[in-house]
Simulated scan of single mutants.
Amino acid sequence: MKIKLKKYKEQLQDWPQKGHHIMAQYDDEKIIVYQSYKRKIGEFTVKNQYFGGEFSLERMTWIKPNFLWMMYRNGWGTKEGQEYVLALHLKMSAFKRYLENAVYSSYDHNLEISREEWQDQIKESSVRLQWDPDHDPFGNKLERRAIQIGLRNEFTRSFAKEDIILIEDISDFVQEQHHFVLNNSLENLIIPEEKPLVFNDENLNKKLRLNQN
């Protein structure tokens, strides 16, 4: 795997405990995001290094940069149809483009626009943005919020082929680490090394409600 790994307990000391944070592994060129699929889609994708075959370009596809949120969502790769866990090395420029075009998937007054304006944006945009409770390795909710991004139409097509640098199958790694969780042995748990992502673009940070401390 071409992912940097670090003990969970060591990382926990440095992570923010609450607020809106994009927890991820990234550098200037790329960011790691995660998805889970059934075996046929996963095998095709890893072999060909793009999304095709039984992958639907017509449906919205959700990406998650936070490893433990993905593990909560797919039950550490045990949920039906989510056994094949992929780590996608995504161009940072593409990830930023998604967020610049994203519209919140549900309305609230913090958006500083009317419900009608939000509804118009929803109709026009092909990117959805959602903040959900983050989770610990056991699936317990945390105060910190985790981001997920939904893509459709031209963004799904771009994501499927042009925006990805590398696709890795990390299913075996996920299974190995799941054993430590099942045995309540978090001192041995190793996960991708992650830190909060903040952009140089203050308008984007404000739109995403990112906490910067």
Results as ranks from 00 to 15, higher is better:
residue 100 E to T: 10
residue 200 N to D: 15
residue 71 M to K: 12
residue 67 F to R: 05
residue 190 I to S: 12
residue 9 K to T: 13
residue 73 R to S: 07
residue 134 D to G: 13
residue 47 K to M: 12
residue 101 N to V: 07
residue 19 G to K: 09
residue 199 F to Y: 13
residue 57 L to Y: 14
residue 42 G to L: 04
residue 14 D to L: 10
residue 37 Y to P: 01
residue 42 G to C: 09
residue 20 H to F: 15
residue 112 E to D: 14
residue 133 P to T: 10
residue 95 F to M: 11
residue 41 I to E: 15
residue 69 W to T: 08
residue 118 W to V: 01
residue 197 L to M: 12
residue 177 Q to C: 01
residue 8 Y to S: 07
residue 23 M to E: 09
residue 140 N to T: 12
residue 165 I to K: 11
residue 33 V to S: 07
residue 203 N to K: 14
residue 55 F to K: 00
residue 39 R to E: 15
residue 179 H to C: 06
residue 52 G to L: 05
residue 128 R to A: 06
residue 102 A to K: 00
residue 26 Y to V: 03
residue 90 L to C: 04
residue 68 L to H: 12
residue 196 P to T: 11
residue 129 L to I: 08
residue 131 W to I: 05
residue 163 D to S: 14
residue 60 M to N: 06
residue 7 K to L: 13
residue 70 M to N: 06
residue 27 D to Q: 03
residue 156 T to R: 05
residue 59 R to I: 01
residue 98 Y to C: 05
residue 103 V to D: 02
residue 61 T to N: 15
residue 17 Q to L: 15
residue 24 A to D: 02
residue 180 F to V: 05
residue 34 Y to A: 02
residue 60 M to S: 13
residue 93 S to T: 13
residue 76 W to N: 08
residue 31 I to G: 01
residue 92 M to E: 01
residue 30 K to V: 14
residue 41 I to D: 12
residue 191 I to Q: 06
residue 136 D to T: 12
residue 86 L to F: 07
residue 111 L to P: 01
residue 29 E to C: 11
residue 205 N to D: 09
residue 95 F to H: 07
residue 128 R to F: 07
residue 106 S to G: 07
residue 59 R to A: 06
residue 131 W to D: 02
residue 146 A to F: 08
residue 101 N to H: 15
residue 171 S to W: 11
residue 142 L to N: 04
residue 67 F to S: 07
residue 72 Y to T: 03
residue 76 W to K: 09
residue 189 L to H: 11
residue 180 F to K: 14
residue 136 D to K: 04
residue 50 Y to F: 15
residue 164 I to R: 06
residue 59 R to T: 03
residue 91 K to G: 05
residue 165 I to F: 12
residue 195 K to L: 08
residue 38 K to C: 10
residue 172 D to P: 02
residue 158 S to P: 03
residue 74 N to K: 08
residue 195 K to S: 14
residue 103 V to Y: 02
residue 17 Q to I: 12
residue 58 E to L: 15
residue 134 D to I: 06
residue 167 I to H: 07
residue 177 Q to R: 09
residue 125 S to K: 00
residue 114 S to E: 08
residue 166 L to D: 14
residue 99 L to W: 05
residue 185 S to T: 13
residue 73 R to A: 06
residue 93 S to R: 14
residue 118 W to L: 00
residue 26 Y to K: 00
residue 132 D to Y: 12
residue 28 D to R: 13
residue 116 E to I: 10
residue 55 F to D: 01
residue 102 A to I: 00
residue 193 E to S: 10
residue 56 S to E: 02
residue 99 L to E: 05
residue 117 E to W: 03
residue 139 G to A: 09
residue 57 L to I: 04
residue 88 L to H: 05
residue 47 K to Q: 15
residue 137 P to G: 01
residue 73 R to W: 05
residue 192 P to Q: 03
residue 156 T to N: 06
residue 185 S to A: 13
residue 59 R to D: 10
residue 55 F to G: 00
residue 7 K to S: 14
residue 113 I to W: 02
residue 60 M to C: 09
residue 150 G to Y: 01
residue 81 G to L: 02
residue 145 R to D: 12
residue 15 W to I: 10
residue 59 R to Y: 03
residue 43 E to A: 13
residue 5 L to A: 10
residue 192 P to F: 05
residue 116 E to K: 13
residue 205 N to A: 11
